[in-house]
Amino acid sequence: MTLHNNHSATIPEHTRPIKLPSDMPQSASVTSDPTSNPSNAPQLADETCIEIANFNAWYGSFQAIDDLTLKIPRNQVTAFIGPSGCGKSTLLRWINRMNDIVPTAHSKGTLRIHDLDVLSPSTDVVHLRRQVGMVFQKPNPFPKSIYENVAFGPRLHLKLRRGELDELVEWSLRKAAVWDEVKDRLHAPALGLSGGQQQRLCIARAIAVGPEILLMDEPCSALDPASTLAIEDLLYELREQYTIVMVTHNMQQASRCSNRTAFFFEGRLVESGPTDDVFTKPQQKRTDDYVRGRFG
């Protein structure tokens, strides 16, 4: 897998300057029992972060996902690929319960993030969405200043002093590799940025609340190639601290920047595994056809 870490030079090693909830072991803030996942335990490469089992989802009477079982490992970039309407976005939107706002959407099965039962009616979705950030297909910065966009989440959830908030905003923008481009105009409207900058701003906004998981719904489909490359590099770097799940239509993108790939077709999981395996020696004929571009 070739990766261009052009941006590593522009992201100084910058440890989070202040004590924030997200400084805590990230899994601990999700699990109901914080001791079950101590931060000093050695991280297993394949430690499961999101566990999906026998999961079904519907919009009204239309079944979008049919009996899907998948484990998403921690600190990896997992790509969901498949033709339109295969259920990959639907699954993504169930991981942070974004589908709650779709009145006809309902689901059945198991969807756990560590020990947290995501689908349980008693789950606090506000808390869940703080732990599971989301970046959308089209950049959607709020019509506020760049600074206010990043500060929005922290203002909502944390009581920070002005200086702490400034530091957190800078930290987030640096992490999202957009600081150098916006540092001189933090109070300019976010909608004045280019599409690629807006999308990185949206990533900064998402990580400012300290999530463990980042969901990305075709994050580059509205961007030009250069901006796409910048985001892909960023994803690969963010993997060290976040578990990233990305939906993409772009096979090259999946092969460039994901470690694991899951191929969906008509609401079912056809195949999943390390990205290299899925692309070079797929087990299923349909996967082979799709990654070679024969359909989809």
Partner: peptide, 21 residues
Amino acid sequence: PRALREGAYGLGCTPFETSVK
């Protein structure tokens, strides 16, 4: 746009916070 509401929900806003903020 609906995208802005989703952005707010995605950051952990309640429906009320989404409307007001």
